[in-house]
Amino acid sequence: MPYIVPIGDAQAQFPDYSFVKALTPSEHKAAFHVRDGDGRDLCLKLIAPNYSVDRLNREIQALQNIDHPNVVVLVEYTYSSKHQQQRHYIIEQFVEGDDLTARLTGQPWSRTKVASFFAALASGLEALRRAKVVHRDLKPNNIRVRHDDAPVIIDFGLARHLDLPDITKTAEGAAIGTPAYFAPEQFGGTKHDIEHRTDLFAFGVLLYEALIGQHPFFRPSRTWAELVRAVCQSDAHFTADSFVQLPKQWRLLVRKLLARQRADRPRTAGQVAAIINKIGAV
């Protein structure tokens, strides 16, 4: 169930902002497009009272040291408790545009568009890597696309800072995130196996979708077991006609990104960005 706050109630709580519209809420956050007194467009997220403060702190820590055009900018985080009233909210840069979901329409993108979009996305992921942050839930809903077609990575609610203890409740589990974008280690590994290259696998799924116009693993009719098998055992996605017809460099890059073993994936998103820039629009 999404956490819904009526826009009027939100406006009453935050009179310093003018509320433009409500954005799609998540389970623990009601989100609004707001404008501050200086006319800046921002995204205000009200946090559900039952949301873990530890988890939120992690999200804040993940974001506060990153300054990159392809990663959402954290403007302010406030937690206060007055008269038994908690005010718990985040203000982020508002990214005009839409979710990547709206752009993945089942049709392959032109490779020129793929190259420029995914090189920028990889560059954003590299900024996360340098900050030792693993997003763990990279998927179309968590990538905004600006009007100029540049991607911005958002929603760090499941992110993990590798220098900080993991607060994941499933003590040994790695199965956090969205299964359609899970890497094999998220199905069968431990949380120690989750690292930057886990995000690169999800990146590979997105790249495949953009190049081919189809998700490599997910089908609405597939059961959980079939999805696990598709990700962890099958190579059928590499034999699809539309994949085989791609230029060799793109096929190779996607195969490396979707490698089952982390050691066989590219080591960094920066490396991936450099390769995409080299491949260009081939």
Binding site: D193, E195, H196, Q261, R262, A263, R267
Partner: peptide, 10 residues
Amino acid sequence: TDSAVSSATA
């Protein structure tokens, strides 16, 4: 070997 190399290269 796969498992060890994956860990080491992290």
